[in-house]
């Protein structure tokens, strides 16, 4: 039984679709040095509303250049975190990308046809200002992407 338990929990296979450095090079050309946003109580409150749970770290790194910011976030899908990147400009999402997917089901969230829905999205009363169509069989991954999109918009709004 223990063996089965260990087998179940070690079953994550990381699918790396793009490395962080490649993503930053694609967005910025020569990537700027990372900056840090400290998660104080006001940021934490807004993040908790966006994510539905407290943000687990005291600081978030981001990259800023030419009026754009890039955020790389992790959020639990069902059992494993999804690593996604968001580029923001003028208070809206420019583009979204899945960098690493670790779940066994639901990797369709990486498809451009799904991710394009986030382009132009803003926060309106703590929610995205547009509906995001779900994907059958990837409900939890879609929900995780929605949470990260909201969190990226919150973070961008608090970034100095």
């Amino acid at each position: 039984m223990l063996a089965a338990l260990l087998t179940c929990c070690a079953a994550s296979a990381d699918s790396v679709y793009q490395s962080r450095d490649d993503f930053l090079r694609e967005v910025f050309g020569a990537p700027p040095p990372p900056q840090v946003l400290w998660v104080d109580s006001s940021v934490q409150g807004a993040l908790k509303a966006a994510l539905g749970h407290p943000y687990g770290q005291a600081r978030v790194r981001y990259w800023r250049k030419d009026g754009k910011t890039a955020w790389i976030l992790d959020e639990l899908g069902k059992e494993y975190p999804i690593t996604a990147a968001f580029v923001l400009g003028k208070g809206a999402i420019d583009s979204a990308r899945v960098l690493v997917y670790r779940e066994t089901r639901g990797m369709e969230v990486r498809y451009p046809s799904f991710l394009r829905q986030y382009s132009g999205a803003r926060l309106q009363n703590g929610r995205l200002d547009r509906p995001i169509d779900g994907i059958s069989g990837a409900t939890l991954s879609v929900q995780a992407m929605d949470r990260m999109a909201r969190a990226a918009l919150v973070l961008d709004g608090h970034a100095p």
Binding site: R20, Q57, A58
Partner: peptide, 11 residues
Amino acid sequence: GRLVESLRDTD
């Protein structure tokens, strides 16, 4: 003991 940041090999 508060987590400030968790860095993986990609970082």
